[in-house]
């Protein structure tokens, strides 16, 4: 994408180019249509040339068990016994970066330009500028970024920013066999979701709804959930995600206040020096009785100390 489309940039305090009006995009994941086939995981690793280590089974369908630096999306399978219907529900969620409108990773990142947000809403990591500190992990409300063991750089879903920039949909969307993942303008996706939610409500899921959490300003990856009142049922999807107050303190108000405090301490010293002045010892005091009494020398003897500073 053109550099003028970078509307937010990590460790940058001035405004970014923002006069071009580019519509926001979004990926909509309909959990009610997902069959857990993992084609999206395969498409992601295929398009992005990622080959994660073949791991071991943890006794569940989750494989790998969690996101890694080389698995940017992972299907998470949760078994839920619905107390109302008595049904066992298999809640499958495609986990990955949510592309927040207010990204915690970007707020926490200390390296200028290592994390950017494009005008279309995609949040992208620039590994070339990544220093490997892991602050993005600390900042993320969704526990998404992963540091690679190989190169100590942070990785996550790019929303296929390379494909989107040339008018293609993300690889996972392209491959999804049931149409559970769709991609388009954020407005269109909300509209599409509204239709799906109405359908689900008719089928008895009266708490069905859209997951586009306000706490992070909305996201550019949204879910249709059958149980939108309990997102945490879906393998710990946060109920009310927001940038942690600790992160806001650390990478928000503390930054300018600390610099101000340090600057003020230096200035206070300077002004103290120029107003009150230094404390000098009257060298006459050195000749006070007691000091000289111990070290009487013959007046003819001149003690010369090469180290003594000559005024």
């Amino acid at each position: 994408m053109a550099t003028q489309d970078v509307i937010a940039r990590s460790a940058t305090t001035t405004e970014r180019p923002s006069i071009r009006e580019i519509g926001e995009v979004a990926k909509l994941i309909d959990t009610s249509k997902c069959i857990g086939c993992k084609a999206c995981q395969v498409a992601c690793s295929e398009w992005n040339d990622l080959r994660d280590e073949v791991g071991t089974s943890h006794g569940t369908y989750d494989n790998p068990i969690d996101l890694t630096a080389e698995s940017w999306t992972v299907m998470k399978f949760a078994e839920y016994e619905n107390p109302q219907s008595g049904n066992l529900e298999w809640l499958i969620r495609k986990d990955g970066c949510m592309h927040c409108a207010e990204p915690g990773c970007l707020k926490a990142c200390p390296s200028p330009g290592a994390i950017v947000k494009y005008a279309n809403g995609i949040v992208d990591f620039n590994q070339d500028k990544c220093i490997g500190c892991g602050y993005c992990i600390t900042g993320c409300p969704f526990d998404v970024p992963r540091l690679s063991e190989k190169d100590k750089k942070a990785y996550k879903c790019t929303l296929c920013s390379d494909r989107v920039s040339v008018g293609l949909e993300p690889a996972c969307v392209k491959t999804c066999p049931t149409g559970a993942i769709v991609f388009g303008s954020k407005e269109d996706m909300k509209e599409h979701a509204a239709g799906r939610i109405a359908d689900l409500k008719e089928r008895g899921f009266d708490k069905a709804g859209l997951y586009d959490p306000d706490g992070v300003g909305g996201t550019h990856v949204m879910y249709v959930l059958h149980h939108a009142d309990q997102p945490s049922l879906y393998s710990e999807l946060p109920n009310e995600p927001a940038i942690s107050p600790l992160v806001s303190l650390w990478k928000g108000v503390a930054k300018p206040l600390a610099l101000l405090g340090m600057g003020a301490a230096v200035l206070a010293g300077f002004f103290h020096y120029t107003r009150v002045g230094p404390v000098r010892v009257e060298e006459d005091e050195a000749e006070a009785p007691g000091a000289t009494g111990v070290h009487q020398v013959d007046p003819a003897v001149h003690v010369v100390d090469p180290k003594e500073p000559r005024a």
Binding site: T12, T13, P110, S111, P112, Y135, K255, P256, A258, L259
Partner: peptide
């Protein structure tokens, strides 16, 4: 400080 504040990066 380089990692703390962008102005000092």
């Amino acid at each position: 400080l380089a990692l703390f504040h962008p102005a000092l990066f």
